[in-house]
Computed example of a mutant assay.
Amino acid sequence: MSLRSVLGTAAGAALLLLAGAPAATASADSYETVTVDPTGSIAPDGTVTLSGTYRCLGNSGPAYVSSSVSQGDPAVRHGIGGTQAVCDGMEHAWKNSGKPSHPVAPGAAHVEATVMELSAGSGLPLPRFHAVQQQDITLSAS
């Protein structure tokens, strides 16, 4: 067996092992969390309101809870507001409202909520993600 075929076999085995390994997550400390309530609302004017809780630790810059909603095509997300976050290790409620660029309807939806900080440690504000949650919810008319 040549060196080339041995290396090829070893590389193939390594790829198979990596393919079966669980993906590493980009979450910070597991103590940092964000949740999404199972129900959101749509006002008569089309404004969507989403809510949940978050907990994060010591930020060096401004932190926010952002949220987005999608229906049907998961590649099309609509940003739904943002709330300033306090990263003191305590659990806090968040509530975001916004009017999507395209209407969404009552029924099943997918929400992503993110706790993100603009960290200025390097001089240039860079995003630092504290927690991310994706969840299926129900939107109801309010």
Rank of each mutant, 00 (worst) to 15 (best):
R4Q: 14
T9F: 12
A11Q: 05
G12P: 00
A13R: 05
A13Y: 04
L16C: 12
L18D: 03
L18C: 13
G20V: 12
G20T: 12
A21E: 07
A23V: 14
S27F: 13
A28E: 14
S30A: 15
T35D: 12
I42A: 05
A43L: 09
P44F: 08
P44S: 15
D45S: 06
T47H: 03
T47I: 03
L50R: 03
L50K: 04
G52D: 02
Y54F: 14
Y54Q: 07
R55V: 11
C56N: 04
L57C: 01
L57V: 13
L57P: 00
N59W: 02
N59R: 09
S60V: 14
P62A: 14
S66A: 12
S67N: 07
S70W: 12
G72Q: 10
D73E: 13
I80W: 11
I80H: 08
Q84P: 13
V86D: 11
V86C: 00
C87L: 13
G89E: 10
M90G: 04
E91G: 06
E91M: 10
H92S: 09
P100A: 07
P103G: 09
P106H: 01
G107F: 09
A108F: 04
A109L: 07
V115M: 05
V115Q: 02
M116V: 15
S119W: 06
L124H: 06
L124K: 05
L124M: 08
L126H: 00
P127Y: 03
P127N: 02
F129M: 05
H130I: 00
Q135F: 00
S140A: 13
